[in-house]
Design a binder for these strands. Structure first.
Lengths: 210, 210
DNA sequence: GTCTATAGGTGATACCAGTCACACAGAAAA
DNA sequence: TTTTCTGTGTGACTGGTATCACCTATAGAC
């Protein structure tokens, strides 16, 4: 691996030997925006660390409805791809490249070998699982206890945090992520605009509310 | 620790030295039914492995509404209690002893030490996180895509799997777990009874449908 | 500038689920 | 037995959100 990505900054706190192994054995892959990186039920033979771009994880049901779970960003890893025991998956998780994405792919054998050699790797793996678990916990909180308007606000705030206040999403895209319908999102957005929380443009909007 | 619990059978596949350390350093605790074992926001200083009984995990929102996540059974561990990095928790998770429970408590220092010494311990920890992650995934699937009748059926089937076909739960308790209301559950149960899926008694019911 | 495709707006309606009110039933206590 | 308590059954109503129908606005192509 060429030293072109700042993996020490992206994944801080790992052991020096581990960085070297990552660079030696890791495989850099460029993935164009829109690619489905992980299909539901697919068995995984490697671990992916994100170097660049954003990967979106969502669930899909039998009828093709989607439900947004969370995004993975540079410096994070795909928990779902960190398999340690083989199991026939029936989890309906799909990972899709939201932008052009660069990943560092770690073959399963090293993933395993490093567990014995590098304590920091171990912590990294657990930290990843834990972080994802907590994201799901939050998600459950939202859909179990909150109404659509609160969920929409939560969703937009999440986007703002990652993409800035200028969000390029259509109402239809948001509706898909929240497993709602365009009309509902349109109405709620309009209401938010009336409250001065947001300015709506075509294809995008700007979040004002702090 | 006295050799009175079959930890080798409950937690199979671990290293012999690890079993010995678990018995040496682990602390057995008996917890009466109904005890709240883990309150939301509580910081955790030990890991709990379940030896006996059932622990229920649920979320709680600001207004005191509950939402059932999953049960932990003998041979499993409480993922939430497996902290490795200290972080101020705001996860609203509550763990409650559903029956009288016996746990093996592992002080955090060993939890950490064993990671370096025993590969099987490492796998156990990751397996635990992964399993819980998947339970949450299923839960999201249910609430995101399904109606109350389907969710109720899913819930009951989960109970049947753990407790057998004779379920001792009131409609109110089910409603609380699903964050619904008693009347709704009563109506749906009645419909299921008409379909011959279930026989309703007072305080309990019997699940017929396979 | 006009056309066309796509995004967004809005009323009408339907439906599921939550809430209120109250009746009833069975078990336990008096 | 009678009372009381708790669990269940059910009609009426309400509110949130999904769906349908159709309209308007805007960007980009022609």
């Amino acid at each position: 691996m060429q030293e072109q990505y700042p993996i020490r900054k992206l994944f801080p706190g790992l052991e020096e030997g581990l960085y070297e192994e990552m660079m030696k054995h890791g495989d850099i892959r460029e993935i164009p925006a829109g690619t489905v990186m992980l299909r539901k039920g697919q068995s995984i033979r490697s671990t992916m660390l994100i170097l660049q771009g954003i990967v979106k994880l969502y669930q899909e049901d039998e009828e093709g409805n989607e439900f947004f779970m969370y995004d993975i960003e540079p410096g994070e890893a795909c928990a779902v791809s960190m398999v340690c025991t083989y199991r026939q998956e029936n989890s309906q998780v799909v990972a899709k490249a939201l932008t052009d994405v660069t990943v560092l792919t770690i073959p399963l054998q090293y993933m395993d070998e490093w567990l014995g050699k590098y304590k920091s790797w171990h912590y990294f793996v657990i930290r990843t699982w834990r972080a994802r678990y907590e994201e799901l916990l939050n998600t459950i909180n939202e859909i179990a206890f909150k109404n659509m308007d609160e969920r929409l606000e939560f969703y937009i705030k999440g986007q703002v945090k990652k993409m800035g206040r200028q969000i390029k999403l259509t109402h239809q895209e948001i509706a898909t992520d929240l497993n709602s319908s365009r009309e509902v999102i349109s109405r709620l957005m309009k209401k938010m605009e009336k409250n001065g929380w947001v300015i709506i443009h075509r294809n995008s909007f700007e979040w004002i509310k702090p």
